[in-house]
Each structure stands twice: as structure tokens, then as C-alpha cells.
Design a protein around this nucleic acid. Structure first.
Lengths: 263, 263
DNA sequence: CGTGAACTTGATGTAGATCAAACCCCGTGG
DNA sequence: CCACGGGGTTTGATCTACATCAAGTTCACG
């Protein structure tokens, strides 16, 4: 099923793609944390790659307690925008996002794509203000983690502290690798690297590493890779002609991962 | 004095550039932390932009206690290399560094330049292994901060925890901005942005924002900006012809910051 | 089933890479 | 003290990967 295009309803698509055990449960910001019984990391498929990774069951429960709840974000809507005051981090529970940074000149650049289990918003910590927009690529659900509570819990739970630091550091490493891509690689290498990265992230999450649907447009991919949308399109066509993959709109089948890696 | 080229001894140059109150005091790795009386954040000119920022005097003393000591790194030597096990973070006390990431294909890319007060090594946290080389651009001194001790202290001291998180987040934001530069900007804009960024960092540290010496080669700058060294050189010459700055080898005078910003 | 957005493909233009040569320091050793 | 050598830098000539412009096609959604 996964990897087939043409779903009528992106919300149900997101739900079956990521198999959320419960339906999204949006919560008012003012709702007390104690009432938040539905959102439980223990039940979440993504707990082993998310904030809860390597926590004992007791500690996961503590994390649940500081989690404010879920928030649904419809396709195209913004989870936050640059300039918003920073209060919470977000963990993607279902769906996916892109983050967009805008220069003073008004030029936009996509700085990252985030899927289930990824954390968004860590750019906001340093100035207590978000520096990018986070936009849902499909109807999505995030866990809302108030930063001051997470901070306090990190002082209590060493494994949580360690995991949080690792997530911050992993983002630094990811961006450093992206800088390498943007600074040194040919268009073909950029596209190949991008596809392999998506593939690997799907594999980590238990989905097919070779057959998937791109949630973003060619323009989004181009922006992320520092090339034009035409170049993305041409490169995909070329890879298809060479038998490295099969494209059909946003659906992709990678037919030769090694050959892609050799680009 | 700062900004004048042609010093005979780079070590003395580094010392007077950053006005270290005491001479470097290298320490053996096994030396107990208690013996580390010489290295004191309280005396350090950079304490307000470093790990100690916004700490009370008592807390700064605690930070001193976990600091393992100083390490001197001669020009061209490596503070750590990709693949080294991650044990410590480093704060630049005097001098400057570049960090270099190397792709599987062996291509090198400079991911950052670091001067006094900056922290290096945060990429190592996530996999407990450094992912880049850190190379001294001149004879330099760093404070060595064992990560497990810092972690423990961050559980004790909320302001230190906050500052540390801010430094991690600031690195994420810096890299996101660099990705924007690499993905969207013309060569001229890249060079102008680079110069203005160096200028601002000098200003923050109390040095001249308009007159300084570049510690890195044209090739280093090119690698960082994703252009060739020839393009860097040509762009500087062009800016000079237009009266935006005066170049003389590695010495630079910015004559029109606004015009540079308008690029 | 109609319509606009997303995508593909082709033709042409250009910023910056690459190749090449000379120059300028700056440290070294005679 | 000066000649020497080599890394760093500048500048010029040429080349090319990719951007840009343009037109048509397909697709997804209302």
C-alpha cells in the first residue's frame, strides 16, 4: 500500500502510513498536563527514535507527563513561523514537515524535511524565537513538548538529558553534511544523496527503503538541494532512463541503491 | 595593533590579539581537576560569550572545577579528527580554528571557523565520535571541558544548562543560515556575507569591526563559501576596485559596511 | 469533469569552474 | 644579508554545468 500514489484523503493517508494507534487528539494550550491521558509515548511507534529513546518505562511515563498533548496541522499549514516566540519543541507523530528559512532579501530556502519521530523547533532555543517556518507537507500530528518542562526533566533524568543532547547534536551533524552537499556536489550527486537519505530514513522507521511517495514538490526538493526544480526533474528522468529508479509523479521506486550511491 | 600583518611569531601574535591574562598552561590528561587553579573562567575575557555566559560568580567557579584545563594547539595541528572518540568539548580561549568535514569520496569542506569564545566539538555528542577535523589556523589555546562532567553540572545548574542548550541551538541556526548562503546566494553575496559575519564577530569581542587580519587562506574561504579560491580572490579585488574595502594579502579594511550589506 | 498547480522537456544564456601563468610574500639556509 | 624556494595569491582565457526562459503535458482536487 505504501508507495502508491493517488490517495483521496491525505488525513487518512497519514494515519495508515504511520499507523497511529489512536486518532489525533488536539488539546487546548491551557489544558492541564495531567488530563493528557491519551498521548502516551509508551504506545507510540516512534518512541525508539524520538525523545523517549533509551528511556526506561518509568522515565517514559515522566516524559508523557510533561508532554502537553498533540496538535494536528493540516497540509500547507504552519506549525510555527519565523519570529514566533519559542515555547515548545515538537516531535512529529504522524505526517511530515518542511522548515523554511527566509533571508532579509525575502529569498526562501528549505533547511530540512522532518518525518515521524523527528524533532522540530530546536532552532528556537538560542534566541527564544523561532528562526524558520515549519510547514506541514501533509495532514500531520505533532507532540507538543513545552521547553521549560523538558529542561526541568532533563535535570532529573540523565538518559533524557543525554538523548536530548544527542538530538541537538544530530541536527548539527545533519546540517554539516547538507553544507557539504551544497558546497561540493554536482546536481546528480545531490539528488542521489537526497533519495538515499530519504530511503534510509524510511528503513529506520520500518517502511520500504525502495518504494515510497515523496511528500514534497520538485520545487521543495530543489530548494533543499540548492538547484532548480527543472534540474531535479531532469535528473530524476535521467536516473529513470538509466534504470536506477522508476518515477511516477511523486511515487518512487529505487531499483539500484548501489548505483545511486556510486553517483 | 590588531589588523597589522607581518608578525614574526604567531604565538605572540595570538597572545596579544586576544590578550590572555595568563600564559597558556597545558595539562596532562590524567591531571586531577582540582589542581587546575590557573585556568579560571572568572579571569577570562571571553566568559560573557562562552559557556560561562549569564552564570553567577559561584556557578562560574563550579564550571572552573569541571574544566580539565587548557590545551595549546600549534598552527596547522589538529585539536581532534573525524573518527576520534568524543570525550570533551572545547572552548577557544585564544587563536582560531577551522572544522573540516570529509565526504566518503574524500572531498573536504570547511564547515566552520571558530574564534575566541566559541565552542567546538558539539558534533561529537550524537554518535560519541567526532565527525570533523578541527585544525588550528594559528597557535591557539582551548579550554578542555569533559563532556560527562559538563552534563552532570548541567543537571545541577539551570543557567549553565540553558546556556549550553543555547550554544547548541546557535550552532544549528548558524548552519541553517550557511545552508541558505550555499543554496541561494551569488558568489559576491557569499563573500560579502562572510566578511560582514567576521566583522560582527570581531565587534562582539571588542575588536575592530572594520580592520582585521583573515587567519585562513583564500582556499579555506572558498571551501567554506562553496566557491573556488580564484572566485574569492576576484571578488575581493572587485570589492576593492569599487571602494568597498582595502585588501592587502590577509589584512582587510572594510570601508563601506552598508554597501557590502547591500550586495 | 474542469482548472490551476505541478511536472516534463527543450532551447538558450551565463556565472563561476577550470586551466594557465605570473607574482608576491615569507621563512630558510647559504 | 641576500638568494632561493614554495605556498599563497592574483589575473586572464576558456569551458561547462546548471540557470533561465518557454511551451506543452499531466495530475490532483474542488
Amino acid at each position: 500500500m505504501y508507495g502508491m500514489p493517488g490517495k483521496a484523503n491525505p488525513a487518512s493517508d497519514a494515519a495508515d502510513t504511520f499507523a497511529s494507534p489512536e486518532p489525533p487528539r488536539p488539546v487546548a494550550a491551557s489544558r492541564p498536563a495531567a488530563a493528557n491521558a491519551g498521548a502516551r509515548c509508551a504506545n507510540c511507534m516512534m518512541r525508539h527514535i524520538c525523545m523517549a529513546a533509551s528511556l526506561e518505562a518509568d522515565d517514559v511515563e515522566q516524559l508523557d507527563r510533561v508532554m502537553q498533548g498533540w496538535r494536528t496541522v493540516r497540509q500547507g499549514e504552519k506549525l510555527f513561523r519565523a519570529g514566533d516566540p519559542f515555547r515548545s519543541l515538537y516531535a512529529v507523530r504522524a505526517g511530515s514537515f518542511k522548515t523554511v528559512v527566509t533571508s532579509e532579501r525575502g529569498k526562501e530556502h528549505i533547511s530540512g524535511f522532518y518525518m515521524a519521530g523527528d524533532a522540530i523547533g530546536m532552532d528556537g532555543i538560542c534566541e527564544e524565537t523561532h528562526t524558520s517556518d515549519a510547514i506541514a507537507l501533509e495532514d500531520s500530528v505533532v507532540c507538543v513538548i513545552p521547553y521549560h518542562l523538558l529542561e526541568a526533566l532533563c535535570r532529573e533524568l540523565k538518559p533524557l538529558q543525554r538523548q536530548f543532547h544527542k538530538m541537538l547534536s544530530a541536527e548539527i551533524v545533519r546540517e554539516a553534511n547538507q553544507m557539504m552537499l551544497l558546497g561540493n556536489m554536482s546536481a546528480e550527486q545531490r539528488v542521489a544523496t537526497f533519495l538515499l537519505s530519504i530511503s534510509a530514513r524510511h528503513r529506520e522507521r520500518g517502511y520500504s527503503a525502495t518504494s515510497f511517495v515523496l511528500r514534497m514538490t520538485r520545487e521543495d526538493i530543489g530548494s533543499y538541494l540548492g538547484v532548480t526544480l527543472e534540474t531535479v526533474s531532469r535528473t530524476l528522468s535521467k536516473f529513470q532512463q538509466e534504470g536506477l529508479l522508476a518515477v511516477q509523479g511523486k511515487s518512487l521506486d529505487l531499483l539500484n541503491l548501489d548505483a545511486l550511491d556510486a553517483r
